[in-house]
Nucleic acid binder design. Structure first.
Lengths: 207, 207
DNA sequence: CATCGATGAATGGCGATTCATTCACGAAAG
DNA sequence: CTTTCGTGAATGAATCGCCATTCATCGATG
């Protein structure tokens, strides 16, 4: 095993994070042993504690860093959309698309994040809120542009849309034999949401 | 402490289940100790094992029994709706209404159920699927009645609607100071979904 | 040789589960 | 009516395995 010098430029830390995603996504946080993650990332048990304070900290770091990347990514992608309508579509496609690019990550973020609020007494999922805000921003923009109903309750609907996407992702993640491609779900969801979200004028329904 | 004869008619078992809901909802399944549940239900640690095989079995029993009640209840309530449109509204209102009637239960079912699929290797949440099927049935009915788009993808949209409701519930459960009443969310969600779900004819938008 | 990342065996505590014992009650006997 | 058993629910202290975390030690590097 070659030695790459002190601190590796974070490469070892990343190996650990990647392994943690794999293990956590397979068995859940509480059923994952630190020693398994160590084995999976090819380091010693103790090494993990050189990079992370403890097991909780490993999970939280994973949340913040990976969610941070997701937020930066989705911001960039949605910015390319012509208007709020197109941006919403991009947002949805991107979210469902994560399933193919990072199935394990989606699973960890969505399943474990949900209860982390409770069991990590004072952890606030900052990056997750940012993700929601991206979605909320699109809705707000749509209202300003006259594309979405002016009386839309953004704080309710951004949650609702996220929840729908999240549940669809979960369905894929938990079923071994998916019926269709994630993009089918995303397209269907967009169609239904959009035609409800739009100001009800016959011409506003086109993509 | 008076003795009520053997087997109580299940009253002790119910005390345990109720306490488990309280404890699980507060701290999550993995952070809850069996001894806490025992204390909270006023029985000895060992007594729990007279009624349940083990800690996992306690959670699963809780799922199946309480979800079973929810399913029976929502079936009955939605049956009263004039048509699929009204039934969907009832379904949504009922779901959000659970927050007031059984906040703890909602929290356990929704947060823990999500990961139970993974960590309980062979548990299939039968009753949960039934709940989804009630929703799916409403959508199907709506298609037949010509109220919902004939090309609606029911298996996608029933998940999406459930996910939206679930996420909205979660928001309430996790925030100490909710901005508005659950019924506000339910009304908003219904409005947005319905006007997208309906066959796009100007007259179909009324409740 | 001093430094420091890495190691992995050992530790310590926690908590699910067990089981020997207690207790309350009804039945049977006197 | 009182006493004596037998039964099975209930108890809770003790057990036992597990696993996060530590730390004495190693060896590469400069």
């Amino acid at each position: 095993m070659p030695r790459r010098g002190p601190n590796d430029g974070g490469e070892k830390r990343n190996r650990i994070l990647r392994a943690a995603i794999r293990i956590f996504s397979q068995k859940g946080f509480f059923n994952s042993k630190v020693s398994e993650i160590a084995r999976a990332s090819g380091v010693a048990d103790g090494t993990i504690y050189l990079y992370f304070k403890n097991k909780d900290d490993l999970l939280i770091s994973l949340f913040e860093e990976k969610m941070g990347e997701m937020v930066a990514d989705v911001r960039q992608r949605t910015a390319a959309g012509e208007n709020a309508f197109a941006k919403l579509r991009i947002f949805m496609d991107n979210h469902m698309g994560l399933l193919e690019r990072e199935a394990g990550l989606v699973e960890v973020l969505m399943v474990e994040l949900r209860q982390s609020n409770k069991f990590l007494k004072d952890y606030v999922p900052v990056k997750f809120f940012e993700y929601l805000e991206v979605l909320g921003g699109i809705l707000e923009e749509g209202k300003r542009q006259g594309i979405f109903r002016p009386d839309l309750n953004v704080s309710v609907m951004r949650r609702a849309i996220f929840g729908a996407l999240d549940e669809l992702c979960l369905t894929y993640v938990l079923s071994k034999k998916p019926k269709y491609h994630p993009s089918v779900s995303s397209a269907e969801l967009f169609r239904v949401f959009a035609e409800g979200l739009c100001v009800p004028r016959p011409d506003a329904a086109g993509v």
